[in-house]
Simulated scan of single mutants.
Amino acid sequence: MLLLAATPIGNLGDASPRLVEALRTATTVAAEDTRVTIKLMNALGVENRPRLLSLNDHNEGARAAELVALAAEEDVLVLSDAGMPVVSDPGFHLVEAAAAAGVRVSVIPGPSAVLAALAVSGLPTDRFTFEGFLPRKGGDRSAALRALVRERRTMVFFESPNRLAASLTDLAAELGAERRVVVCRELTKMYEEVRRGTAAELAAWAAEGVRGEICIVVEGAAPLAIDLETGVEQVLELVSDGVRLKDASAAIAAETGLGRRDLYESALRRR
């Protein structure tokens, strides 16, 4: 089978006993960076020396078939440099190919920067969306944020420290200067820092320069304060664009806080 294993995101003490045992017994390891995996094994006192195969963004498409074939015959341990493989790391195409071939895929859960940042943020955790890295270019980044302006779920992003100030400035411009934001830096490491504030406040703070691994957690949009009649008009606009009435009612309900059934039935009477 393919065995996806989470590795520490900073603190070596977060390595689970299952991860250590898997490293001790593995015969084949597919690693995002084999050098990082060797360092991890040495740090954990693992003397096993399995066959190490690189699995990264550049070779995953070509290597997936080879690894799936191996996993049909033996266990193949899959590691990223930190955290869970597949989540903003290599592995998706491999898992997709394994599932299509009927090869079992299992997991050794563990550290996750996404969940760690969400947990400490103090923002709502009942519903959230992980958006990965924002685009590098300013125009593309602004467009990506603009598309999320009405997203009501808490949003989690990864970001490079070199682009943090620019991303927070764009976030303030597109989502609002007063939108609540939390920047989590160096989670689980010695210099861990969780800084909370408005988008504008954190953009000013980041302008002085920030180092380390960064997660940004952003408050979702507040429900739009509109009446039922206006909501129905928005539903009908979506319907005129080809969206099914049921789906349009659900979308506007999610954005506005209006009742989905009320929107649906009122729009149905208006058609």
Rank of each mutant, 00 (worst) to 15 (best):
L2E: 04
R150M: 12
H93F: 10
R49T: 14
S88R: 01
F157L: 06
T129N: 06
R153H: 02
L55H: 01
L44S: 11
G132F: 08
D75R: 15
P223W: 02
S249R: 11
G132R: 05
A207T: 00
N48L: 05
V87W: 00
V76G: 07
V86S: 06
R270Y: 15
G138H: 14
N42Y: 13
E174S: 07
G231F: 10
A119S: 15
T34P: 06
L115S: 11
E255I: 12
L55C: 01
G138N: 12
G257S: 05
E74P: 12
F158D: 01
L3C: 08
A250Y: 13
E174W: 06
L228R: 07
R127N: 09
G83M: 08
S112Q: 08
G257N: 02
A200L: 11
L175Q: 04
C215V: 14
G197L: 01
A97N: 09
V183T: 00
T230W: 11
R260E: 15
E208P: 00
A200P: 02
V76Q: 05
A251W: 11
R260D: 09
A225K: 02
E131D: 15
G257Q: 07
A119E: 12
V114I: 11
R146V: 04
S160F: 01
G242H: 05
T256L: 13
A64S: 09
L175D: 08
E73D: 15
I252Q: 13
D262K: 04
V105Y: 11
